[in-house]
Design a protein around this nucleic acid. Structure first.
Length: 555
RNA sequence: GGGCCCGUGGCUUAGCAUGGAUAAAGCACCGGCCUUCUAAGCCGGGGAUCGCGGGUUCAAAUCCCGCCGGGUCCGCCA
């Protein structure tokens, strides 16, 4: 709804309706700072310009209530009708509230894509959560979304894991991804001691790339095992991929050859010591990109190029979520795609998650597995649920799970991707303010009021703008901003923007909750407030859903 | 060494795209609020040279230049 209000404001401003001068403000629902720019050009005072614009402004909008010129700002206040329509619309649209059309057809979101050589750790989880939330936001914007996990099944690490698997087998009693990483670590150690084993690794990689049956079966077995464990972990935090796309597919289906041919045709390749190299100096890079080793095998980037050629043929837009260590190669990939006359992927780079004692290292065993984090957060949540909720064991467990995944997801999604973060157990296990539990709690409180209203036999809802006080007004304006915020978050691909918004909604609702009685209010006021509570409930629930967090009705 | 990212109260962050009205929250700290719809809550208080220095501007946390601190990348690895 706020998007409509803004549209009307822009129309009312006419020639001065440039969206880039519109700002949120504590003095109005939206304000424009055009007068400052114009004053500079005309060499007059902003206040005078603003006065003049307001004096001559003509508009016919049911949503704009008041326009004022204050110190050069042009302040717009929404009308009572806007408030009423907002609440009614939320109540009508219910689970669809917040949807809007971004006007795009299809988006492919590739995220997580961790090497299938072992379990996910908390760094990978940041990727998954950002990616999954971005995908959910696109769906809310009525875009067809497909999510991909790009499986690097051709890497050296995988070959090592396979070798380990072949030599020692694996422990079938363990979670499969854990079992795979143990074989990988064991083999790695052996290679360090006996460097001539390198040859075997290389032989295996060549065999797999050539499609040797035995190698293919071995790789397929090991990678599937790892993926099985990874999927299980991901499911626990409500992350699910539509497709797992194996890298090797692109060497088998000819896309790798096609992309190399395209590079040749554009004269972008050179040969050095038997290897095929993209001359990146022409594109402004110091570092070249090797696409074929002298032994004839391809590299990760070669297959990635082929993958992106394939993406070009199937999707309008494609977004990748990548750790910032991939910045150079990611940008090179984008520029090579453009040089080929193709669309480049949009990339969200996120900074590393480190531990208080320093950066994580899989090899040194300095990392926190995602499973451990999930389990510990769950245990902590369960303790609190036990203490305060009088429900069946099943329900308590369900609530603890919802609170745990919520806490975890929110903890990662609230931080802007480009911020490095240091993992902190005490924060991860905190369920108070500025955590998902706070939002879930507000939602549960709203549900509780509504439940009692039904039980009392007086569930009538009707928002009455003439009864709306300033606190309530503030809430409705916030509620109206749902899709506007999703759009804003999507524009910059920063899901933290929405996480922040939902926290504001929860906070405003909690203020309201403690300040104003609902069930005990007199008839009309009660109906009015019940409508508001229900609207909050819907926004909170839809918002949590957008963040991949379950909105429980009791907690 | 070069490229990129980060630097906002003691701690964790928002705001930076598109410069504008007293820099916004949480944690921690201090003080209040459960005979009223769930206290995982609410209210109040103290606490910030927005890393440092310059510049642009009527106006800079936001833009530009330099510096400092931290991270990261610079493999015929992924």
């Amino acid at each position: 709804m706020f998007r409509r209000f803004i549209r009307d404001v822009i129309k009312a401003l006419g020639d001065y309706g440039d969206e880039k001068f519109l700002r949120e403000s504590e003095y109005a629902d939206i304000c424009s700072t055009v007068a400052f720019k114009l004053a500079k050009e005309k060499n007059t005072k902003p206040a005078e310009v603003a006065d003049e614009i307001v004096a001559f402004m003509e508009f016919d909008s049911d949503y704009i209530g008041k326009v004022e010129s204050v110190n050069g700002y042009i302040n717009f206040t929404a009308s009572g009708e806007f408030l009423r329509e907002t609440v009614n619309r939320i109540l009508d649209e219910d689970e669809n509230y917040g949807s809007f059309s971004l006007g795009e057809k299809s988006v492919l979101v590739e995220h997580t894509s961790a090497n299938p050589d072992g379990p996910l750790h908390i760094g990978h989880i940041r990727n998954s959560i950002i990616g999954d939330t971005v995908a959910r936001m696109f769906r809310k914007a009525m875009v067809d979304v497909v999510t991909h996990y790009y499986v690097n099944d051709m890497g050296r690490q995988i070959a090592i894991a396979c070798l380990g698997y072949k030599k020692y087998g694996i422990d079938r009693s363990k979670k499969p991804d854990q079992a795979v990483v143990e074989a990988y670590i064991k083999m790695n150690r052996e290679i360090e001691e006996k460097p001539d084993l390198e040859e075997e690794v290389e032989k295996l990689m060549i065999a797999y790339e050539r499609g040797d049956e035995e190698a293919v079966n071995l790789f397929r077995e090991v990678v599937s095992l790892a993926l099985q464990g990874i999927t299980e972990t991901l499911n626990k935090i409500n992350v699910c991929h539509d497709e797992y796309v194996w890298e090797s597919m692109f060497v088998r289906n000819g896309y790798v050859d096609r992309v190399i041919r395209m590079l040749e045709e554009r004269n972008m390749l050179k040969e050095e010591a038997g290897a095929l190299i993209i001359d990146m100096k022409k594109l402004g890079y110091e570092k070249d990109v090797v696409v074929k080793r002298k032994n004839g095998t391809t590299l990760y980037v070669t297959r990635d190029l082929a993958y992106h050629l394939w993406k070009n043929e199937n999707y309008e837009r494609f977004v990748n979520i990548l750790g910032s260590d991939h910045k150079l190669i990611g940008r090179q990939l984008q520029d090579v795609m453009k040089a080929l006359g193709l669309k480049a992927p949009e990339i969200v780079f996120f900074e590393f998650v480190s531990l208080p004692e320093g950066s994580m290292s899989t090899r040194k065993g300095k990392f926190i597995p995602a499973d451990e984090l999930i389990d510990r957060v769950y245990v902590e949540a369960k303790k609190i649920v036990e203490k305060r909720v009088d429900l069946s064991e099943d329900e308590k467990e369900k609530i603890a799970r919802a609170v745990a995944t919520g806490a975890l997801r929110y903890d990662f999604v609230r931080i802007a991707p480009e911020k490095p973060m240091t993992f902190d157990w005490s924060k991860a296990l905190d369920f108070e303010r500025q955590s998902a539990a706070y939002i879930q709690y507000s939602h549960a409180r709203a549900c509780s009021i509504l439940r009692k209203a039904v039980r009392e036999g007086k569930p009538e809802l009707e928002f009455l703008e003439e009864l709306c006080n300033s606190d309530e007004r503030k809430i409705v304006i916030l509620l109206s901003k749902f899709s506007w915020v999703v759009e804003k978050a999507l524009r910059t691909l920063r899901p933290n923007v929405f996480a922040d918004y939902l926290m504001d909604v929860a906070s405003a609702f909690n203020d309201f909750y403690s300040k104003y009685p609902v069930l005990k209010a007199d008839s009309e006021l009660r109906m009015h407030r019940l409508a508001l509570v229900d609207a909050c409930r819907i926004v909170l629930r839809n918002g949590l859903e957008l963040l991949g967090i379950e909105a429980v009705e009791r907690m």
